[in-house]
Amino acid sequence: MINAVIVDDESKARQTIEEMLKTYCPQVSIVGQADSVENAFEIINHTKPDVVFLDIRMPDGTGFDLLKRFESVWFHFVIITAFEDYAVAAFKYSAIDYILKPIDPSDLYAAVEKLSRTINLEENKKKIDTLLSNVDNPNSKPNKIVLKTSDNIHVVDIQNIVRCESQNNYTQFFFESGKSILISKTLKEFDDMLAASGFIRVHQSHLVNKRFVKQLKRFPQLKLIMFDDSEIPVAVRKKDYIIEQMEGR
C-alpha cells in the first residue's frame, strides 16, 4: 500500500483527487487530507505518508512554503495545479512531477506508478532547492536545471551549458568546464525548456547555447564555431533563422 496525503484548499478538489485515486490507483490509501499549509504540516508529520499530492495556492501560503518548512523532505510529492504559468516552467527545470487540473486520470496513474519504494533524500533536496531558487524570482528566467543521470542527480547553472547533442533517446550535455553527461531524456524535451534561456536548435541533433557561439562558418560547409573552436553542423534550411537568432542575442 502507498500511503498518501492530499493537500488542497478546496474540498471539492480533494474529493475529486480522492475519488480518482480510488478508481485508478487502488494501491494508494489516503491517510489524511489538509486544506492549508499549517494543517498540512501537522498532518504530514503525524501520518508519515509516502506521497503528498500538493496544490500550490492555499489561503495561508503556497505549496512551496509547505515544502520549505520541512528540514528534510522525506516523502514523495506530486504537485497538482490549475495554472500553466511560470511555476510550471520551474517544475520542468527542477524535474519535479506535476499534474495539471482538470486532472487526466492517466497522468495521475503515471505519477503513482513512478513512485519508487525508497526515497532519495538528497535527490528530493536538490530538486526542491532548485525549484525554490527558480521560483523565488518569478520575473527572471530560471537559472538552474536538474539533470538526472542513471546513477546521479545534477543541479547545473543553465548558463554553464555549452550545448546538448541528441544520442537516440538520450541527450548528451557539454559544459563550459569541458565535462559532459548523458541524460535519459530526448533533445526535444530540452529544446522546449531551454529555448527561453537562449538556446537554439541548429540541427536535428544539436541544441546550442547562443552565448558560446563564436561564428557561423559558411564555407565549405555551414557550421557553427563554438567558443572552444569545436564545430557544430547546421541545418541548411535553418540558416536564416539561425542568423536572425544570433543577431538578436
Binding site: 471539492k12 478538489a13 474529493q15 475529486t16 475519488e19 480518482m20 490549475a82 495554472f83 495539471l100 487540473k101 482538470p102 486532472i103
Partner: peptide, 12 residues
Amino acid sequence: FNSLTAIQSYIF
C-alpha cells in the same frame, strides 16, 4: 481551467 476543473469535480 477553473470551470473545467469544477465540472470534473462534480463528475467524480
